[in-house]
């Protein structure tokens, strides 16, 4: 397997005996410059991998918090080109933190899949998570992305049974994102025991790291989930922290970036206690 920023980072965390903290924020939320400041603050506060949401008008798998974040970003004029440019600027100051773009297919389809994967790679993107592209649609974007040297990270869910897992994992690279619940982002809190079983099940089929997300909102949940997972993904809680920091007109305040950094710091301490005393 070729070494990538993603594989390197998961290996470093594994060597340190802890899960990776994967943080999600929406690009352009609440505005382009504040969003860039948040992006820069994430690794400093303890994020190991950054998922950057590409806002879409119709986020069918997302709950209210991430829907609202996307609306704020689009209202502020965010586009796919601006998101790629944000990554390019980030790469000028951080060469090590992996960046995974997460979103829905239509903006990429309209941009052009081939053109997009080349531009994303050039900007310094490491991987893609596209919610509405199952393995049955691999020719749309997954195969071009792999050919361009990007990781294509697939979602596995509680409904993905053993018969289907090999197809889901076939072209997956970087890591596997296990969606801990059937539901939308930011809803029910996952059951740590069931998640552990599911992670074990996926690991019987792949050597890739398994990160777990959907419903993780605080250090305690992050620690519980991180006992068995190679990574813990937190998204809705972070964008909710952004939302809570805005002024009455929905604009960023002096509290916005520190609020996100503080929560990430808290979650980072959570993942560092995940396996203390567990073995």
């Amino acid at each position: 397997m070729t070494e990538t920023r993603i594989s390197r980072r998961f290996a470093e965390c594994a060597a340190a005996g802890r899960p990776a903290l994967v943080t999600f924020v929406t690009a352009g939320d609440p505005d382009l410059e504040t969003s860039f400041e948040i992006l820069k603050a994430l690794p400093k506060a303890g994020a190991d991998v950054v998922e950057l949401g590409m806002p879409f008008s119709d986020p069918m798998a997302d709950g209210p918090a991430i829907q609202a974040a996307g609306q704020r970003a689009l209202h502020g004029g965010q586009t796919l080109a601006k998101t790629l440019d944000m990554v390019r600027r980030f790469r000028e100051i951080d060469a090590a933190t992996p960046i995974v773009l997460m979103g829905y297919y239509n903006p990429i389809y309209v941009f052009g899949s081939e053109r997009f994967v080349v531009a994303a790679k050039a900007a310094g993107v490491d991987g893609l998570i596209i919610v509405d592209l199952p393995p049955e649609a691999d020719d749309e974007l997954c195969l071009p992305a792999l050919a361009a040297g990007l990781n294509f990270i697939r979602l596995a869910t509680p409904t993905t049974d053993d018969a289907r897992l090999p197809a889901v994992l076939a072209n997956t690279s970087g890591f596997v994102y296990y969606v801990s619940i059937t539901g939308i982002t930011g809803s029910a809190t996952p059951n740590a025991t069931r998640v552990a079983e599911a992670v074990g099940r996926i690991k019987r089929h792949t050597a890739l790291p398994v990160a777990v997300g959907f419903g993780v909102r605080d250090a305690a949940t992050a620690a519980a989930i991180g006992r068995d997972a190679d990574g813990v993904v937190v998204g809705s809680a972070l964008v909710a922290a952004i939302a809570a920091s805005l002024d009455a007109d929905g604009r960023a305040t002096a509290k916005t970036v520190p609020a996100v950094a503080a929560l990430v710091g808290d979650l980072a301490s959570g993942v560092r206690t995940a396996r203390v005393g567990a073995r």
Binding site: Y105, D132, P134, R164, V179
Partner: peptide, 20 residues
């Protein structure tokens, strides 16, 4: 058999729904 009419149609859904 993949649900396409020419280039249109298909199954662009989240993995949770795909088995269903």
């Amino acid at each position: 058999d993949r649900g396409f009419f020419g280039i249109y149609g298909g199954r662009f859904v989240a993995e949770t729904l795909m088995p269903l």
